[in-house]
Design a protein around this nucleic acid. Structure first.
Lengths: 243, 243
DNA sequence: CGCTGGGTTGATCGCACTCAACCCGCGTGG
DNA sequence: CCACGCGGGTTGAGTGCGATCAACCCAGCG
């Protein structure tokens, strides 16, 4: 579900933009997906635009739709009754919503920016996947990748210190940017400190303190939403928990 | 990967036991998997027995095999260089190993008991899945379910107190037993306090203290590896984090 | 017998949380 | 024009939950 942390090369549903408004088709050459699938996909899709803080799906709702984010970013979180919140992933342009789905959504997806998306009826997409086994395979790969990422995050949440989690988060963002062909170094933080905290299982104060700590140690320079990584190797070492 | 926490009904690869030593075939009627698939599966499988503490797969090894546990239990964990350990799941009889796999294993799987398993060559199984799209679909479902479970665990590790985590763990075990047709109430703890701690992101002392705390509160009775749940509703309420 | 693994309990510590003050930039409206 | 509120961020002081260190118990076993 989360693209932020995805390590794998992007797969078809990430590349394809089947909404009429934007005919990006470069995915058709990617991994052997044919035009036929894309045509069929386009026929079952509806697009929409959301404002920040609007919900794409809400925890507990009947899971009748899958989505593809075509522009903007969102957060995926779970809530406890008293308001405690755990962000289980961030979604960015190109990401798919619907990998971890039962009969109801087990999480809420909320737009962080103004956001465009495509909606697929669940039944429609599943039916289409039945006709294109290769797509089924890709979806399994994506779910597997997400699972590996989730396990990595469990390690962080269960066993890593605040410093290690924050360092790891910065490295994740840097690698993600690199994977998308952007510059890996000035890392952009598209989310607030509170969101970072809810992702890392910390408080926003601890995130802020830890960033200044890493700054004081000369590993990074922080400027609002931008982080310059000056000693990436050291940052990685911290993130991996080396003594 | 973890069966412990799986909420979904068991799928084919969990039921099937394609090793020659045990011809359990009840799975053939389950979810429309035909004998043909099972025959093919049997042809690519090799079985083996392991002692406690032996490794089934080791973090970092080339991922050349998938496995099906046919008897016994195992733990799946990730390590940090200084020895900190996070168990990301437990595996029991019938469970499948290989959902969250890239080119190398991202975790270690270690037998907790004497254990029997079947080994599938990765290429063989993937090739077979290519011929049986329905199986591919089931594997995706399993991966999706695991992902949902992992997200639930992230919530626990990131935001729940020790008391909530332990209560939730007991409820998980109880529900799992029920799902497997066993009595839900006297919950058996097949693993040590240290393993529970490594799963819940706590120390073994905290797990022990928390169990006695729940006992003092009259919610459970503890006898070594057995836990009698006397007030399940209250336990659930605690686990869900209700104020 | 004594050793070992697993478990419980006690005393103390420390990391991250909590509560609070304060800063800054921005938009709104008097 | 400045006043004000507000969201986002930083920093400080004090607290507390769970970690750490340690002692002890018990059962199984060689």
């Amino acid at each position: 579900m989360t693209a932020l942390t995805r390590e794998a090369p992007r797969t078809v549903l990430h590349k394809v933009d089947p909404c009429g408004s934007c005919g990006a088709r470069e995915a058709s050459v990617c991994r052997g997906v044919g035009d036929e699938f894309l045509d069929r996909l386009a026929s079952i899709v509806a697009s929409r635009t959301l404002d920040p803080h609007e919900l794409i799906v809400a925890e507990g709702d009947a899971a009748t739709s899958y989505f593809n984010i075509t522009d903007g970013s969102a957060k995926v979180y779970k809530l406890l009754p008293d308001g405690r919140q755990q962000i289980v992933g961030f979604l960015f342009t190109g990401d798919f919503v619907g990998l971890a789905v039962r009969d109801t959504y087990a999480y809420t997806v909320e737009a962080m920016t103004r956001l465009k998306l495509c909606r697929f009826g669940r039944g429609d997409l599943e039916r289409l996947l039945g006709e294109f086994p290769h797509m089924e395979h890709l979806l399994r790969q994506m779910a597997s990748d997400e699972l590996a990422v989730a396990q990595e995050q469990m390690l962080a949440l269960g066993r890593k210190t605040a410093r290690e989690r924050v360092a790891g988060f910065l490295i994740q963002l840097s690698r993600r940017a690199e994977r998308l062909g952007q510059a890996p170094n000035p890392v952009q933080l598209p989310m607030t400190r509170a969101d970072i905290a809810d992702y890392l299982g910390l408080t926003l104060e601890t995130v802020s303190r830890t960033l200044t700590l890493l700054k004081s140690a000369g590993l990074i320079a922080v400027d609002r939403q931008t982080v310059y990584v000056s000693r990436k190797a050291d940052l990685i070492e911290i993130a991996e928990g080396e003594a």
